[in-house]
Computed example of a mutant assay.
Amino acid sequence: MEKQQLPNATLILVLSIASILCCCAYGAGIIPAVISLVLANKSVKLYKADPELYDNFSNIKTGRIIAIIGIVLNAVYIVYSIAMIAIFGIDGLMERYQLIQEQYQ
């Protein structure tokens, strides 16, 4: 019997990489990371049910690891953002950003 490809392997990798790329967008990268992790877990269950039938399990494992890293990076950025708001307040942050913009103009 010919081995099949696990479903959504490419999608899992793409979403995982997108989660890392979006980690500094106010934590918005957590959405593709969670979706990727859910899809990866479904594929792992499918693979464990019949491992001889599927071929690309390494892609699923890689995507799952990258998704976990993406969740951690996004969580760290969200905690950092909350800490900065707690320390400086929103008005203080806006003043800092305006000073930075004035320096680069």
Rank of each mutant, 00 (worst) to 15 (best):
V72D: 01
Q4K: 12
Q103G: 11
L6A: 10
S36R: 09
E2H: 13
Y77L: 05
I87P: 05
G29K: 15
V34P: 10
L39R: 11
V44H: 06
N8Q: 07
V79S: 01
I35H: 08
A9F: 04
T10L: 09
P7N: 00
Y104Q: 09
Y54N: 03
I87C: 04
L99G: 15
V34Q: 08
A9M: 04
I31S: 12
L21C: 02
Y80V: 05
C23T: 14
Q101K: 14
S16I: 02
Y97K: 12
C23I: 07
D91K: 13
I65N: 08
K61C: 01
C23M: 15
Y104L: 12
V44S: 00
N74A: 01
E95K: 06
V34I: 15
N59T: 02
I65E: 05
L11D: 15
V38Q: 03
V79Q: 00
V38W: 06
D50S: 03
Q105A: 11
Y104F: 12
I85A: 02
I82S: 09
Y54M: 04
L39Q: 12
R64A: 01
A67K: 07
I90R: 09
L37M: 14
L21R: 00
T10H: 09
G92N: 03
A33R: 13
I30C: 05
V76N: 01
C22H: 06
N56Q: 04
N59E: 12
Y80P: 01
A40L: 10
R96D: 07
D55S: 11
K48F: 01
I100K: 14
G89C: 04
S19T: 12
E2T: 13
I17V: 15
K3R: 14
L37Y: 11
N41G: 05
L93W: 10
K61D: 01
Q105D: 10
L6V: 10
I100T: 14
L37T: 13
I12C: 00
V76G: 00
N8R: 06
S36V: 04
D55N: 09
Q4C: 04
V34E: 07
I31V: 15
L73Q: 01
I71H: 03
Q98W: 07
Q105I: 14
V44D: 05
N59I: 02
I85E: 02
Q105Y: 14
I17R: 03
Y77C: 04
I87E: 05
Q5D: 12
Y77V: 07
Y77M: 09
I20F: 12
G63M: 05
P32L: 07
L11Y: 13
F57P: 00
I66L: 14
Q105L: 13
Y80L: 10
I66D: 03
K48C: 02
Q101S: 14
I65A: 13
V76E: 04
A67Q: 08
L99K: 15
S19E: 07
P7I: 00
S58K: 08
